[in-house]
Every structure is written in structure tokens, then in C-alpha cells.
Amino acid sequence: MKRKTYLRNQMQYYSMLLIPLGILLVFDITPMFGLVMAFQNYKPTLGFLGSNWIGLGNFEFILQLPEIWRLAGNTLEIAVLKIVCDLTIPVIFALILNEVKNQKYKRTVQTIVYLPHFLSWVILATLFRNLLSSDGVINQVIRFLGGETIYPFTDNRLYVPFLIITDAWKGFGYGAIIYLAAITGIDPALYESAMMDGATRIQRIVHITIPGIMPIIVLKTMMSLGSILNAGFDQIFATYNPLVYETGDIIDTYIYRFGLVQRQYSLSAAIGMIKSVIAAILILISNFLATKFSDYRVF
């Protein structure tokens, strides 16, 4: 290639990246400098230069907060339970849906089960408040079956199961897409020869379909390590209230209340910093594992 063309191409590539990188500089990298407040006793009136530097004081204070361990525990518990559901239910659903032979019925079911994924937690919160109110449909059914009325929105024991179940409900259909695609990629000749040999449908699922989608399951498992601190802010923020703080309050919601509502800027920035460093390490590990143990690569 001619030198002139080469130079022109370089210029044009950089000019394309001008706006994206500029946006990152202003809205992503600049705020990172704001994190110095985690090492200060930051007062908005004094600014970054006028506020006192207190070294690791904020971090020491945080680690002594009695609620911090409860928050970490809640976050981990909710996130891990969600990951477990996310790794199992979509696979099982994909396997079952794959056995439906009527294509029209199959497509209708697929379209319907994708729906919850696209609805916001604000809307879903309203839907579930209606369904789960003390005289709502679900409680009427429970009472009919002889059970006791449940109040998931105000009961600490039931709030976490409520989060897990509704999250699984929202995501299982959409989560199955990737497995359904992997199943389509399995060589039909395998099924045909298995049928010739007299394999039953269950045997075909166990010995052909499941091994066929195993690489995706492994990949998803490793990638999910990165979301182990991600308990789902949008869902919890839209549904929680002070009555369920004991089990439902997570690090992210606490940072919001502590930082923006109680205006503890430095302390909440310090908590956020600890969390995002751990989260970044986890994501890097999971990407590393994914690259190493399957042929996935990000960049």
C-alpha cells in the first residue's frame, strides 16, 4: 500500500475514535480522579484541594461498620443464588423446549417467554405488588390450598426468595436463547444414527444434546464469576423498603443511600472503590478462565 494512503487511513481511523474516546475521557476517566475523595474527609464547600487528607481513614472506618459484613453477605447470597438459577433453569428450559416438535407452538412459546426480560423492574414491581398483595391472586391461591398469607415485600425471610424467583422468571426465556442456538448447531446425523441404534429420546438428550451444549455451559459458568458481586441493583431498588433491609440491603443500594441521601461522600466513595476493585479482579479472572478453558476471547 502506498505510504500516502496508509497515512490517510490512520488519520481517518483516529478521527473516528475522536468522539468515543473524548466521551470516555470526560465521563469515565475524569470521574476516576474524583475517587481521591475516598482518601479525604471531603466537604463540597472546601472542594478537593481544601478538604483534609486522611489517608486510609475512611477504609478503616468502613471495615469497622457493623453493617458492612451483613451487606457483603446479603450481596453475595443474592448474587450467588441468582447465578445458580441462571446457570440451570435456562438450560433445562432449552432442553425441554427443544423436544417440542410443533414448530408454530414452539415459536409462540419462545416469543412469550422472552417478554419478561424486556420489561423494567419498575413495571414488574407494580405487577408483583398486585399479584402478591395480602388479598392478591397468589395469596388467594395459597389460602385456598390451606397455606398462610405471605408478605414477601415486608418479610425478611421471604424477600430474598422473592428476588431470586422473580429474577429467574424474568431471565430464563432470554437466557435460553444461547443454548437453543447451540442445539441447532449440533449435527443432525448424530441424532439419526442414535435413532437407528434404537436410542430413546431421553438417551438422545443425555448423550447428544447435553454434551453438545456443554462448552456453552462451561463458558457461562466461568463468565458468571464476574457477576458475583452483582446482586441486581435495579430489581432491589424498585422493590425494597426499610422493613427488608436486614436481608435485602446490598452494597449498591447502601452506597446510594449512604452517599446521595445521607451525603457521606467520602465514605461511600471508599465503599464503591473497594467493591469495584474486587469486581474488576473477578471479571479479569473469569475472562482469563474463559479464554483458557474454551475458545472464547473478548478482544
Binding site: 465521563f27 470521574p31 480522579f33 474524583g34 452517599g259 461511600s268 469495584s276 474488576a280 471479571i283
Partner: peptide
């Protein structure tokens, strides 16, 4: 940039 951010409050200050 994908991994790290300044968090809610520094971001709010920029905005």
C-alpha cells in the same frame, strides 16, 4: 474504562 468508573458521586459532579 469498561472495568472501572468513578462511581456515582464523582460522576454526578462532572455532569
Amino acid at each position: 474504562c469498561n472495568l472501572f468508573g468513578g462511581g456515582l458521586i464523582p460522576y454526578y459532579m462532572v455532569v
